[in-house]
Write a protein that binds this DNA or RNA. Structure first.
Lengths: 164, 164
DNA sequence: TCCATAATGGTCAATCCTGACTAATCAGAA
DNA sequence: TTCTGATTAGTCAGGATTGACCATTATGGA
């Protein structure tokens, strides 16, 4: 339900239309993984469940904007999901570990070179995160957290490369 | 393709039947996320693609075991996927961050308590990982990596709780 | 001798997720 | 005034994933 929590949270206090929603999400999508089609899918589902409502707004002769509002029920669900999410630990899946598990299938020299490539990619990402403007408001924490773990990742890779 | 890489890797050098495969995966499933039904689905697909073959083995009057073998093509694909996986950085999604992003929706006292719960859960997981026997062979790295990141997570949570 | 449980090997309907695609309007550039 | 690109709002077919379910045989204990 993390995806629902995210959408409800974004709609809290500030109704939005789909485009706005997707714009905000795109800024952190790399670390969230939520595509436009999924957003609309979830929005429909939450409308069916009564967590949100939709109204069409006309502005000039533009195509009508569909504006999504949180309902009282949606707010209650949000509170509940939020508390659950905060209280729990969510085990993390590192898909890069699968390769590591079979590292012994490769000659050590190849392995070193490949891991050096990976290290460079991690570092590049870290630099991007540190130099790019942080997204507005609360989504900032997502970036901070990523930076933390990228630093750990860099250390880990250095050790690995060194001990091969 | 990480899931395929995992299955190919497990079948490399040692043919296995589905039950064995699923048993091994279950030991690290928390950090992989691959259910039995998905395993069979992928196994079928890889059979269709010619990456593996299946033969039925009879042992006594037991239900026949379906044994999966890697083909030469499967081995080639494995090598390719492995090199790709090792060379790339895979951005990580922390679903626990979504709650953090909306932390300001809660009274600080509540937030502190909830995060303390999360911290306890992380610590419990860390203890489990450190005291449980590591899974056989190469999957060990998955555990080592998890431990690393759990330590970072603990630090991060301590800071968060402190600065609320 | 029964019975419960583990070992074994799946299947399937339902749900979830996404890449690719479609459409219309409007502001500003040329 | 005509063209381009941004804004706006989705849809949909197809693929991926899974929870729940089924069926048989061996084994060990009551």
């Amino acid at each position: 339900m993390e995806r629902e929590l995210l959408l409800l949270g974004l709609l809290r206090g500030q109704e939005m239309h789909g485009y706005q929603l997707n714009e905000i999400i795109n800024r952190v999508n790399r670390y969230i993984g939520l595509k436009k089609a999924t957003v609309y899918f979830l929005l429909d589902k939450m409308d069916d469940s009564g967590w949100i409502t939709r109204t069409d707004e006309q502005e000039g002769h533009r195509p009508p904007r569909r504006v999504y509002h949180l309902t009282a029920e949606g707010e209650a669900i949000f509170q509940q999901l939020l508390r659950e999410n905060l209280a729990q630990h969510h085990p993390t899946q590192f898909s890069g570990d699968i390769g590591l598990a079979f590292a012994d299938a490769l000659p050590p020299d190849d392995l070193r070179m490949l891991l050096a490539d990976r290290r460079a990619a991690v570092e590049a990402e870290l630099v991007t995160l540190r130099t790019t403007d942080h997204p507005a408001g609360s989504l900032r924490w997502i970036i901070e957290h990523q930076i933390r773990h990228l630093v750990t990742e860099l250390d880990w890779l250095d050790e690995l490369i060194h001990t091969i």
